[in-house]
């Protein structure tokens, strides 16, 4: 907005009047009042014991829950990413059986709620009391008791990881398709087989393209792990709920859990920002000239 005086014909500067945006001030005041009032209602609520919030914020069980939440998030995301790349490559295979199976996997895991999948894995023992890994037609192999393998932790990791793989596979597929077709042709012209072209040329570029959305998946995973409390995975939410079930301080412990979730998200967001700065410009460059797939990518990956 201009504040410098405007000179008239004879060269005398004439000041510019200040504009008062009355509507803006009014809207801001109303919004602030409403927000402040709501915050006040919560903060000064006599039934909310802030002392308890402070007391439990660094409670040993809460801290161990935070650690388990991070562990489950990292492991489930890693499982989801690796499996997601595999499913995406299968989905794009010329073999109709492989691509059909990959489509089915994606449809199945996206079509059922994560909650259902978590409970399913936790109760796998109903279907298979024992897990057996052996060479067919021999007695050589290993056997485990399903209930000992499928703890809350492993079923959480499996359930969340397999579910993420289905979503991530679609992101990877968009990434692969966004890589310029000319890259494939150049790889073939050099004498690469389709598999080598995928591994050496296409996937490294596709992964650079999809690194920013990967950060989103992880941030979302941090909070999705709270569902793990249905299978008692000893994560942050499970431990918080066990404490409030004992002392009935539900609101206080939800605040404690939320503070930790927000803190973890803030750290993850910071890391994602750095990833994006490192690879973001790469992604734009690689996608440029990628044709139709490049335009679809932001929608799928976003």
């Amino acid at each position: 907005m201009r504040t410098e005086p405007i000179a008239d014909g004879s060269g005398t500067p004439i000041p510019v009047a200040r504009t008062w945006h009355w509507g803006r001030w009014l809207a801001a005041a109303v919004a602030l009042a409403v927000a402040g009032w709501l915050a006040y209602l919560v903060v000064v609520n006599p039934r909310l014991d802030w002392g308890k919030v402070a007391e439990y914020l660094f409670n040993e069980r809460i801290l161990s829950g935070v650690w388990v939440t991070i562990e489950i998030s990292v492991l489930a995301t890693a499982l989801g990413l690796v499996l997601g790349v595999l499913v995406a490559v299968m989905r794009l295979a010329h073999n109709p059986v492989l691509s059909g199976l990959a489509s089915f996997y994606i449809w199945f895991f996206r079509g059922t709620p994560v909650l259902v999948q978590l409970i399913f894995w936790y109760n796998l023992a109903f279907l298979f009391p024992e897990l057996v890994l052996k060479i067919p037609f021999t007695m050589i192999g290993l056997k485990w008791d399903t209930n000992q393998v499928m703890t809350g932790f492993t079923s959480a990791m499996l359930g969340l990881g397999l579910n993420l793989a289905a979503y991530f596979a679609e992101t990877v597929r968009a990434g692969i398709q966004a890589v310029d077709r000319g890259q494939t042709e150049a790889a073939y012209a050099l004498g690469m087989t389709p598999a080598k072209r995928m591994r050496v040329i296409v996937l490294p570029q596709a992964l650079r393209i999809i690194i920013p959305p990967t950060g989103n998946e992880f941030i979302s995973m941090l909070k999705t792990t709270s569902l793990v409390y249905v299978v008692a995975g000893h994560d942050l939410m499970t431990n918080a709920s066990q404490i409030y079930k004992a002392n009935n301080r539900i609101m206080e412990l939800l605040i404690v859990a939320s503070v930790w979730y927000m803190l973890m998200t803030a750290v993850a967001t910071f890391l994602q920002g750095r990833l994006e700065r490192r690879f973001g410009s790469d992604a734009v460059r690689l996608v440029r000239g990628g044709g139709a797939a490049a335009r679809i990518l932001p929608k799928v990956a976003g």
Binding site: G182, Q183, A186, A189, G191, P204
Partner: peptide, 15 residues
């Protein structure tokens, strides 16, 4: 392997 090809749009490996 025995045939080199040069494309109109270069197609250098971008990464």
């Amino acid at each position: 392997r025995n045939i080199g090809m040069v494309f109109q749009r270069f197609n250098l490996f971008a990464h």
